[in-house]
Every structure is written in C-alpha cells, then in structure tokens.
C-alpha cells in the first residue's frame, strides 16, 4: 500500500487510512513535540492538536513534500504556537536553574535518560533552539523564520543553550562564569 493511496483514502474520510498514517508517523511527531515543549502532559495535548489539524487540513496537502515532512513541520509549528500562547516566552537571560544531579559514576557516558532530563530543565527558549538545531538538524535561517527572530539571535541562543546543557550535565569545577580559573 503506497502512502499516496493512504492519503487519498484519508482525504475521503477513511478512518483506517488515517490510523495507518498516524501509526507510520506518530513516534516522530510525538518526539519532536515532546522535546520542544519539555513536558509530558503538554506534549500529549500538542501532539493530539497537531494530528487533528493535520487531518482537518489534509485537503490542502498537495504532496509537494512527503507527508512525513509536512506533518513534522505542522507539529513543530503547533508546538511553537502553543508555547507562545501559553506565555512560555523564551527565557534568554533567566536565572540559572539548579543543576541536574551529577550522574552516577557508571552514568558518565551520556545516557539517553540523563540527556532527556537535562533537555527538560533548559529554559524554553534555549531548549527550542537546541532541539531544532542540534536534534532536528534545522538551519539557523529556518529556526529564525519559525521563531520570528534574527539569525544572529538564533545562533546566540544556541551557544547559550549548549553551554547551559553542559552546566546541567557536568557542573563547572574550577571554572567560574567567565571561564576563568577559580
């Protein structure tokens, strides 16, 4: 069964075709949404919203890109819009959060769990740019376009986000805020 045929059936209102499309792409959609919003409950809401919007707008999907690409873009936009509406503004210069507990000795190698926890603890603005660039592979131009900021702002946010991520994973020792020896 080709995806084109599934899309055709889904456009005609066939719920089984919709479910097949959902099954094929739900993991990817939920993942990008969850990583962008940093919260399980909000991610569940946003992911559902994205899918409902997708099926409602399926008639406007013309197939210039793959369905997965279109759906991914719609999911990212839905997540960013929700964060904007809920007042979760980018916290560019927010006060430093307490660092994540240092990993156990046998977890020095970055585990997915530790990485995920650190991502969740990043301020929203940092997390969004870091996820879009370092996880999703988007360019600064794309990120700037989605967030409505300048390219330079996207770069600056990314560098701050990476630094904060390292602070959370390995609190600085013998190195002060400016990077100088303590």
């Amino acid at each position: 069964m080709s995806e084109a045929r599934l899309l055709e059936a889904a456009r005609a209102g066939d719920q089984r075709a919709m479910e097949a499309l959902y099954t094929a792409h739900s993991g990817r959609v939920f993942t990008v949404v969850r990583r962008l919003v940093g919260d399980d409950h909000l991610a569940e809401d946003v992911s559902q919203d994205a899918w409902v919007r997708a099926f409602e707008k399926l008639g406007s999907f013309r197939g210039e890109a793959a369905f997965g690409t279109w759906m991914h873009r719609l999911a990212v936009n839905t997540a960013l819009n929700r964060l904007r509406r809920s007042g979760r503004r980018p916290e560019v210069e927010s006060a430093a959060e307490p660092p994540t507990a240092p990993p156990d000795a046998d977890e020095r190698i970055l585990s997915q769990r530790v990485l995920g926890q650190a991502l969740d603890r990043l301020p929203n603005g940092y997390r969004q740019v870091l996820v879009m660039h370092d996880v999703e592979g988007m360019t600064h131009e794309e990120i700037a376009d989605r967030l409505g900021v300048a390219v330079g702002t996207s770069k600056s946010q990314l560098h701050k986000a990476r630094a904060r991520m390292r602070d959370l994973l390995a609190p600085p020792m013998g190195r002060n805020e400016a990077g100088n020896h303590a």
Binding site: Q15, M18, S26, G137
Partner: peptide, 25 residues
Amino acid sequence: TRMALSALPDLEPPVDEWERIRARL
C-alpha cells in the same frame, strides 16, 4: 553531547493517543 543529542531515539506516543484523536475527529 551534540552527537548524543542528534542520536536520541524517537519516543513512544501515549498508548491511547489515536483513540483520543479519533474521538476529537
């Protein structure tokens, strides 16, 4: 860290997500 981030696996959506979407549709 950057490499580990780019290699993070996909997450599982909630088991009842499709049922909820279907209900909303």
